[in-house]
Write a protein that binds this DNA or RNA. Sequence first.
DNA 1: CTGAAAGCGCTTACAG
DNA 2: CTGAAAGCGCTTACAG
Lengths: 365, 365
Amino acid sequence: MGGGEGKVTARKISGDARAEGAGQGGAKSVSAKDVAALAGVSRAAVSRTFTPGASVSAETRRKVLEAADALGYQVNHLARGLTRQQTGIVALIVAKLATPYRSAMVQALTGKLQAAGKVAMIINTDQEEATVELALRQALSYRADAAVILSGMPDRSIADLCHRNGQRLVLINRDDSLPGSIQLRVNDAQAGRMALLAFLRAGCRRLAVATSCDDTPSLLARERSFLEEARTLGLDVQCERFGASGYDSGLALGERLLVRPERPDAVFCTTDLIACGVMDAARQRFGLSIPADLSVIGFDDIPQAGWEAYQLTTFTQPIEETASAAVDWIARGENGDVPCRVDLTATMRWRRSVRARQAEAAPAG
Amino acid sequence: MGGGEGKVTARKISGDARAEGAGQGGAKSVSAKDVAALAGVSRAAVSRTFTPGASVSAETRRKVLEAADALGYQVNHLARGLTRQQTGIVALIVAKLATPYRSAMVQALTGKLQAAGKVAMIINTDQEEATVELALRQALSYRADAAVILSGMPDRSIADLCHRNGQRLVLINRDDSLPGSIQLRVNDAQAGRMALLAFLRAGCRRLAVATSCDDTPSLLARERSFLEEARTLGLDVQCERFGASGYDSGLALGERLLVRPERPDAVFCTTDLIACGVMDAARQRFGLSIPADLSVIGFDDIPQAGWEAYQLTTFTQPIEETASAAVDWIARGENGDVPCRVDLTATMRWRRSVRARQAEAAPAG
DNA sequence: CTGAAAGCGCTTACAG
DNA sequence: CTGAAAGCGCTTACAG
């Protein structure tokens, strides 16, 4: 399964002797018992030394710490998790992790989780389908205190299972709300409307939206709100939908849209990646110039949107805020039978892909 | 710490009752004992049912499975890890996860780990410095079977601690070799030489390299090999070094290089991100055209290198192969007192940022 | 094939 | 403050 082109050459390195320490194979690690023995105290004493707020005398503590250090002792969080009611593990369930937006979110989440004394376990759902359920079961197996769902949507029964087992759920931009979970949402719908208005103010009249076939709640909300606002204003919008929401789809979408007789002069892309593709198609394949011939607005504000070659006007995802809200809720650990919802806002980031406001253009002929 | 601009509005959702199941707070999850009771068998029987290859009669197995399903039982991997000598957890130690190359590696690693029945725990070392050691200690706390180091380099003493505790180390593009570890390396040095030769064949004569101040082994090897090969051939190379290895540094590096009186006609960038920055600086700030006025070669083959706006000639990192090699070694679980090394190769990917071969140019005046 | 029992490494009332 | 003991949920020889 791992094949590919890079040639692999393995060889043993002779040198370097073996580590001084313990023998062969899966070495047993040092336990509290060992430390207790060396320090001349009880196992309980060493446990207390490593439990913030437990009562140990300074002297005992010193002896324990010394012995622990000498032995290289680390408290075993697995065993601790078995005893206490929580493990400190939080599962991040995610597909297509290498995408700019996703990886930024995962970076923020792992960093903040760490700062809060938790640790992230990542469960990759790229593989087979219908795996959100499997992922959640795996999280359950490791007794994760919580699971953060970045991709896919668990159905009710598995969510209930999590809830029954005390595993809390945070749903990022998913639409259902589930018992014992928190739902983090961004203002996708508002963004769609703002994009439309921005185009109109710029004097654009041949409107289009480019989106993918991934029907995530966010993408749908962006698309629909743009369309609805247009309908309200009695405007026509050409809508093209294709593939996954990546750069390549953007390229294809750009081609399809720009080849039309009624060539759009503005396109709202539900994703920055799509927008970059659309821009490249416009420039390289149609010789168009942006924003003079075509205005583009994206969503996400991935790093590439700010690159000189794009300078894309877009909506910046509140990644830090989202991650903070998730981690705070997890760390707070309230009983959470009542579903909770937090609304975050993606704010518009003006760059140079929308032409400057200009007088109402005469209807293009 | 998590502040920022997005406005946050939280509110409770009233509806939806509470889940039918267990009561308030950190619900206790169902254990093998519960299943055993319901199925009318011993705890050992349920354990065996979930242990591949253990001996259970079909009838017992059926009863157990039925009860387990009814109760929503999941074996507790933490408890299992306590008993068996391994937990199935592998720690990924990484900084700057949101970078294209890093996130692709993490995606590959998590996917393959999962396929091999392991699970990835990610330890983010963005925060404070000197945290590789802390990260490794955390991995030890969770009794990770292995730790994969993508960023930073642990010093000898902590590596020994890992080894003594039976935690195996995989080092991706780090230069030291450590006991009980595997070292995965890519042919950076060869790449540097190939890049130089490619420029020469294209007729470029005013050579430069653009790199960052991150002194990772890989970056250094790429830079040095390019420089040395040039020296061997008696050629001069302008070398510019700046910041971290991202797009912004590339922009700055491009400016610094292109403003020089002896303007380079070829620049080898130790990273694709830097290359994209250099290309944008060349085009947008100097009105240069690529490859006519300037040839560029990068390294990594991140997705953006293939975007129409760049079409960057680069070296593609053997990400899948690297991840496979790492996971195979981890899964194999050999005793590993002897350090092991695997050499992978990044192959050159020709695109359009190097001008076509041309007759030896008359020495530019 | 199956169950009783010991053990993995920790924590936490419970006495002192 | 401190230790002995029970318990967290599982697995694995050991007998049967």
